[in-house]
Amino acid sequence: MLKQLVLITALGTAAILSGCESMPSSSATSTQNPQLLQNRTWVATHIGNTAIQTSPQARNIPSIQFDEATKRVSGADGCNRIMGSYSVNRDTLQLSQMAGTRMACLNNNNIDRDFNDALAKVTHYKTIGKTLQLLDRYGNPVLKFESAVQPR
């Protein structure tokens, strides 16, 4: 009976320790670093949990760029050009003075409206590899982006 108890305890401890070792720490997979956010083009892939379907030939593909030198944000919402200013800290992101062009875009499934509604909710960000998530105040992703490959 004692051998069985020791064996069960040893197996349980080994399972717990191996589970802890195999789980990556959040700092290894997720980074809040302004340098990873800035000076690159981010192409939108999701608004909330909804995937964005755009043609590579489409004009004004939903995207965003953060210029470190000027602290200006620019991009497109799927129809219009957008611009504004931003401030960033370790994991917070504040967008302000956002403006955009006002073109009439047909048949875009309201991507521009949904994109701008999501941008208005952004308070935090998270980069994971080549992925950027813009988060609301509750930590929920409102926009997801992939880093665009820049032509040389």
Results as ranks from 00 to 15, higher is better:
Asn109Phe: 14
Thr13Gln: 04
Lys71Phe: 07
Ser27Glu: 15
Ala10Leu: 13
Glu68Met: 08
Met98Thr: 02
Gly139Arg: 02
Asn39Gly: 04
Ile61Pro: 07
Asn39Arg: 05
Asp112Ser: 15
Leu37Lys: 05
Arg137Lys: 08
Cys79Phe: 10
Val122Ala: 02
Asn60Gln: 11
Ala58Glu: 14
Gln94Asn: 02
Cys105Arg: 12
Glu21Leu: 14
Phe115Gly: 00
Ile61Gly: 04
Thr13Phe: 13
Val6Leu: 15
Pro24Asn: 11
Glu146Met: 09
Leu37Gly: 02
Thr29Val: 15
Gly75Asn: 01
Lys3Tyr: 13
Arg72Met: 01
Gln32Asp: 14
Ala148Leu: 05
Glu68Ala: 13
Gln38Gly: 02
Val6Gly: 12
Leu95Gly: 01
Arg90Gly: 04
Ala51Ile: 01
Ser74Phe: 03
Ser63Tyr: 06
Gln57Thr: 08
Gly48Phe: 09
Ile111Val: 15
Lys144Asp: 07
Val142Thr: 06
Lys130Met: 12
Arg40Phe: 07
Pro56Asn: 10
Ala58Gln: 12
Asp117Trp: 11
Asp114Met: 15
Asp77Leu: 03
Ala10Arg: 05
Arg102Gly: 04
Ala104Arg: 10
Gln150Cys: 04
Thr54Cys: 06
Met83Leu: 04
Ser22Asn: 11
Tyr86Leu: 03
Ile64Val: 12
His124Pro: 03
Gln38Asp: 02
Ser22Ile: 14
Met103Gln: 13
Asn140Cys: 02
Phe66Leu: 04
Ile47Ser: 01
Asn140Gln: 12
Ile47Lys: 00
Asp117Thr: 14
Asn116Arg: 05
Arg152Ile: 09
Pro24Met: 12
Cys20Tyr: 15
Thr127Met: 15
Lys121His: 08
Ser55Gln: 14
Pro34Thr: 05
Leu7Gln: 14
Thr50Val: 06
Met1Glu: 13
His124Ser: 11
Gln35Val: 03
Asp117His: 13
Thr92Tyr: 03
Arg72Asp: 02
Ser96Lys: 08
Ala44Ile: 03
Arg59Ala: 13
Lys121Arg: 15
Asn89Gln: 09
Gln65Gly: 06
Tyr86Ala: 00
Gly75Phe: 01
Gly100Phe: 03
Ser147Ile: 10
Lys126Met: 09
Thr50Leu: 09
Met98Asn: 03
Ala51Asp: 04
Lys144Phe: 06
Thr92Asp: 09
Phe145Lys: 01
Thr131Glu: 15
Leu134Lys: 02
Pro141Cys: 07
Leu106Thr: 07
Gln150Met: 11
Ser87Gly: 01
Thr45Leu: 10
Thr41Asn: 11
Ile61Arg: 07
Ala28Arg: 13
Ile52Phe: 04
Gln32Ile: 10
Asn109Arg: 12
Tyr138Glu: 11
Leu5Ile: 15
Asn80Cys: 04
Val73Tyr: 08
His124Gln: 12
Ser18Ala: 14
Ser27Ile: 13
Gln97Lys: 09
Thr9Tyr: 13
Val142Pro: 03
Ala76Gly: 04
Ile8Val: 10
Val149Gly: 04
Thr101Gln: 06
Ser96Met: 03
Met1Thr: 14
Gln57Trp: 08
Phe66Pro: 01
Gln97Met: 09
Ala104Gly: 10
Pro62Val: 10
Gln133Phe: 05
Leu95Phe: 01
Ala14Asn: 12
Leu143Phe: 10
Ala44Phe: 00
Glu68Arg: 07
Ala76Cys: 06
Met103Leu: 14
Thr123Met: 00
Thr54Arg: 12
Ser96His: 03
Cys20Met: 14
Lys121Ala: 04
Leu135Arg: 02
Phe115Gln: 03
Pro24Lys: 13
Gln53Trp: 10
Ser87Gln: 07
